[in-house]
Amino acid sequence: MEPPPGTAESSKLRHVEKDILIPQIMRDRAKELCSDKVQAFTKCCQETGLLMVVKCRQENTALKDCLVGYYSDPLFYEECKTEYLKQREEYRATGIKKKRQKLTSNV
């Protein structure tokens, strides 16, 4: 039997959790996992200025392929969902919100 929705043990997800909060974790983790491609694209853009649309296609494609690979992976979604549920359970039990770490890159 599923615990009531407001309890720490409940694993039922609201729309905002499915559509916004879990995808945010996915984006953050994917950027970390694709950090080499993020850095390569950022460096290319900084070096080429206005011509970046033309000159950084290869780096942009590599970055998009890496990110989309994670975004479309159902196992990666489940990992991020589990991470979110763990954070939510901890918050509901303690009332202390875990701060999200910001990436140091410019992306």
Rank of each mutant, 00 (worst) to 15 (best):
M1N: 09
M1H: 13
M1Q: 10
E2P: 03
P3F: 02
P3H: 03
P5K: 01
P5I: 03
G6W: 05
T7H: 01
E9G: 02
E9T: 01
S11H: 10
R14P: 01
H15A: 09
V16P: 00
V16Y: 12
E17K: 01
E17Y: 00
L21S: 05
L21W: 08
P23E: 08
P23H: 07
Q24C: 14
M26R: 08
A30P: 00
L33Q: 14
S35T: 09
A40S: 14
A40N: 12
F41C: 06
K43V: 11
K43Y: 09
C44V: 03
Q46H: 09
Q46T: 11
Q46K: 15
E47V: 02
T48R: 14
T48V: 13
G49A: 04
G49H: 04
G49K: 06
L50P: 13
M52Q: 15
M52D: 09
V54R: 13
V54M: 12
Q58P: 01
Q58L: 09
N60R: 15
T61V: 14
K64R: 15
D65A: 10
D65G: 12
D65S: 13
L67F: 07
G69Y: 07
Y71H: 05
S72P: 04
D73V: 02
P74Y: 03
F76N: 00
E79S: 08
E79A: 06
C80W: 00
C80Q: 00
K81D: 03
T82R: 06
L85A: 01
L85V: 02
Q87K: 08
R88T: 01
R88E: 02
E89M: 08
E89R: 15
E90V: 08
E90R: 08
Y91I: 00
Y91L: 02
Y91F: 09
R92E: 05
A93R: 00
A93H: 00
G95R: 00
G95F: 00
K97T: 06
R100F: 03
K102W: 11
K102C: 06
T104V: 09
T104W: 14
S105T: 10
S105R: 07
